[in-house]
Simulated scan of single mutants.
Amino acid sequence: MDSQEVRRQWAERSGEFSPTYYAYRGPDERSEAVLDAIKRRLDTDARVLELGCSSGRHLSHLYDNGFRDLHGIELNPDAIEVMAEHYPELVDAATVHIGAMEDIVGEFADDAFDAVYSVETLQHIHPDAEWVFAELARITEDLLVTVENEGEDDEELNYVNDEVPLHYRDWHAVFTGLGLTEDETRAGDRDTIRAFTAR
């Protein structure tokens, strides 16, 4: 399965792991981890971008805690309609770019966002699109937060329900290799939370 097929599946996804699925689950401990990482380092006027924002459950948690300059990238076009239903204040406040991350990040200026974060999104980037990680470092002015599954031992690939590919990576190595400094690491119930500073 190449990166084009992976993106097509996410863009057309309904049911499990779709925007509606995540909207009903609402903010969770991952939302709180992102809020905590950002709030300890930046003011609420920070420009914040979520990668793979879906229907906005993590962005809504930031909105409810005073952040207003919120942005998202989401592949599935149904996400905006679901966001409008579940988080109407957020959909009016946030700027959401619909499309593949690989097609959008190049449009942003250097240091376009004070904080960029992902929650179980970068693990779906196919190896043939790993160049996008350098773009994420480029558009991050202050803080990059990853909340991702990292696998165990030398495991590189796994499938959820035998269909959703997870590409496990050492995010410390990825982003420190791109010039960022990791200043926080902690284990969640299934994810590793890492915070990187860009200066």
Rank of each mutant, 00 (worst) to 15 (best):
S3W: 13
S3K: 07
E5Q: 06
V6G: 06
V6R: 12
R7L: 12
R8E: 15
A11F: 08
F17A: 04
P19Q: 11
T20Q: 14
Y21N: 12
A23N: 05
R25Q: 15
R25V: 11
G26R: 07
R30H: 15
S31N: 04
E32C: 01
K39C: 04
R40Y: 11
R40F: 11
R41V: 01
R41D: 08
T44D: 12
A46P: 05
A46S: 07
V48C: 06
V48M: 06
G52M: 02
L59I: 00
H61Q: 05
Y63S: 03
D64Y: 02
D69M: 02
D69S: 14
L70M: 06
N76R: 08
N76F: 11
P77M: 03
P77F: 06
P77N: 04
I80W: 03
M83F: 08
M83T: 13
E89D: 12
E89K: 01
E89N: 04
V96K: 00
H97D: 12
I98W: 07
G99F: 08
A100T: 07
A100S: 15
A100I: 01
E102H: 03
D103E: 13
G106T: 04
E107C: 10
D110S: 05
D111F: 13
F113W: 05
D114R: 01
D114P: 04
E120T: 13
L122I: 07
L122P: 03
Q123L: 15
Q123G: 14
H124F: 00
P127Y: 14
D128Q: 09
V132G: 00
V132C: 10
A137R: 04
R138M: 10
I139P: 03
N149D: 05
N149G: 03
D154R: 09
D154T: 08
E155M: 15
E155S: 12
E156K: 07
E156H: 01
L157S: 09
L157M: 09
L157P: 01
Y159A: 05
E163R: 02
P165E: 02
P165Q: 02
Y168G: 00
R169A: 13
D170S: 15
H172E: 14
H172P: 01
F175Q: 04
T176L: 05
G177A: 15
L178W: 11
L178R: 07
G179Y: 14
E184K: 08
R186P: 00
D189S: 11
R194N: 07
A195S: 14
T197H: 14
